[in-house]
Nucleic acid binder design. Structure first.
Lengths: 228, 228
DNA sequence: ATACTGTGTCCCATAAAGCGAAACATACCT
DNA sequence: AGGTATGTTTCGCTTTATGGGACACAGTAT
């Protein structure tokens, strides 16, 4: 598929191990012969791209993070002042989310200093089934990646089409009662959505159409963080 | 080396691309024949493990981060409450650092709420040449990885030997005048140091031997975050 | 206790994939 | 204009990767 079969197989194995996999699960998910899966997983383990726990389950190893450091670091470094600026411009808490399978993780945040505010601590794992950031992270994904999730989502395919059209998403009382939010995509150089930038706060302040008020600032921040 | 030559070559290529590389640089750094380096880099690009910019330079692609998400997520998720607990227990700001080549990045922090405090925002990139976290991230590295850096460090090989003996590091006015800090390692299941956890604050409060006061709490927090 | 099934590991004969020299195209420098 | 460096592609050949099957161990059913 890429022209190098061993790499094709290794990537399939890595994808199967994101949430942990035994050898049997690996074979089942990758459809590779057991000897092949075992041999390649061991080789990835030697490189610390996979690690194996006491139960014999493989999951992503530290070397992946080391090799990936440049990409996330650049975004994280650039995001910190941008989130602070967005918080100051909008008067609401701002966050940055990465997608992880069926969840999203907050990797940077700038919290409104006082008063009523939505607090999402860095490291928090939130669902992909609700919230404007989830809509943004899903809207540009291929349909086959989205379809299995949609039955459990608080939004629909139609909502995601609207997100693609507008370039941003808004939600009211989706992830949490009383909270409204606006999100926009952050893209890599190829145009793929790699993260979502958001502001969130109480419905009392943001209203039932928070995009009217804050979409432009959030979209602008997302554009500035794109292409790094 | 791992028994699968293509994977061995791919990892060498990925390591060479962490800070960006043209084809010529890739060939120079990996010692691979040009056709081989080109073919494998293109295959990694097809998988989005590498991306290529307009100048033809390859660097880590978004897929690496996606595949690595689980590993950093587990640590990041677990760290947030642990950093808060450490901040409350010690009364100082607490941070978590990952190593990136010759720098370290703050990926999680819990800041002391009021008064004089050391503020390191999430996303901040700090040098590997000064500070107790730098000592911890270097102390268990192989000598050949450390030697090139030592001439520029504010500490010595002897300091690093002491860190290995004690299991923690302390620094006074190294990274910044007036700031003292204590750090301890966070290890993966194989025992390798993958991150450093720290508390930092003014010398006035922490004293010139901040380890006397806080090493136990920091080491304990590091142990609890190890092996995830 | 025994038989069967599932899982993990390893070996090695074989086939297929990956290798990489060389050719070609383009850009840059003198 | 000529030489050099860089990037891309081809394809005959060699080396590497494949994966069936054997083995060991654990778990389950009878």
């Amino acid at each position: 598929m890429s022209g190098v079969g061993v790499l094709d197989k290794a990537v399939v194995i890595l994808a199967a191990c994101v949430d942990g996999a035994s050898l049997a699960e690996l074979v089942e998910r990758t459809k590779l012969p057991r000897a092949t899966a075992h041999r390649l997983a061991q080789a990835l383990e030697i490189h610390r791209i996979l690690v194996r726990d006491q139960q014999g389950r493989w999951r992503p190893g530290p070397r992946l993070g080391e090799l990936a450091n440049a990409a996330p670091d650049v975004l994280l470094s650039a995001a910190a002042p941008m989130l602070s600026a967005l918080r100051d411009a909008t008067g609401e808490s701002a966050q940055l989310y990465l997608r992880r399978a069926d969840e999203r993780i907050c990797v940077a945040a700038a919290e409104r200093a006082s008063g009523l505010r939505d607090t999402v601590p860095v490291g928090a794992v939130l669902p992909m089934t609700a919230g404007s950031a989830a809509q943004v992270l899903l809207a540009w994904e291929p349909p086959e990646a989205v379809m299995p999730l949609l039955p459990r989502c608080r939004f629909t395919g139609r909502t995601l089409a609207e997100v693609r059209r507008r370039g941003w998403a808004q939600s009211v009382a989706e992830r949490e009662a009383g909270v409204a939010s606006v999100s926009a995509p952050i893209r890599d150089r190829t145009g793929r959505v790699i993260a979502a930038i958001s502001v969130s706060g109480p419905i009392e302040r943001l209203g039932r159409r928070p995009g009217d008020r804050h979409a432009m600032a959030v979209v602008r921040a997302g554009q500035r963080l794109s292409g790094l």
